[in-house]
């Protein structure tokens, strides 16, 4: 009876292949690692010893054994707990921002490296090629 109700709640038949044995355990751990334990501070369902987390892990195991896919399982928990329960954010902006920063930063680094390699144009000291004087200048600078 409860299984029937679960299927109704999931609104769809399983879309993947049923799992069992060590593969099932492995996948349970993986999917449970993507779910946030609702009571603990930031721990995943896979790691948490709290009662609700253990129940959720068991539920994940059962759903995987019946062939539900990761997406279906995550959607099911999202229905009851909200987006809060997903440890991997769905929001696209947060995934793109670091890449944007990397690209912007790389441009800055390349332009800076090029700029710093040009000979300097303002230098109020008499330029010198004498290695000794250059060195002393460096040391005398305070």
């Amino acid at each position: 009876m409860i299984l029937l109700l679960l299927t109704v709640a999931l609104n769809a038949p399983p879309q993947g292949t049923p799992l069992s044995g060590p593969a099932l355990e492995q996948r349970t751990y993986e999917v449970a690692s993507l779910l946030r334990c609702p009571v603990c501070q930031g721990m995943s369902v896979a790691d948490s010893p709290s009662t609700v987390a253990l129940d959720m892990k068991q539920q994940v195991r059962e759903l995987l054994a019946r062939g539900y896919t990761q997406e279906q399982i995550l959607a099911y928990f999202e229905q009851s707990y909200g987006q809060f329960v997903l440890l991997k954010p769905r929001n696209r902006l947060i995934w793109i921002l670091p890449i944007l920063i990397l690209v912007a930063g790389a441009i800055v680094v390349v332009t800076t490296a090029k700029k710093l390699s040009q000979p300097s144009t303002t230098d109020d000291r008499q330029p010198t090629t004498d290695a000794y004087i250059s060195r002393v200048r460096e040391l005398v600078d305070k």
Binding site: P38, V39, T51, V52, D55, Q58, Q59, S80, Y81
Partner: peptide, 13 residues
Amino acid sequence: EQGKTAIAYGVGG
């Protein structure tokens, strides 16, 4: 028994 209803309701604690 196994907390399935609790999970369906989004019960945390």
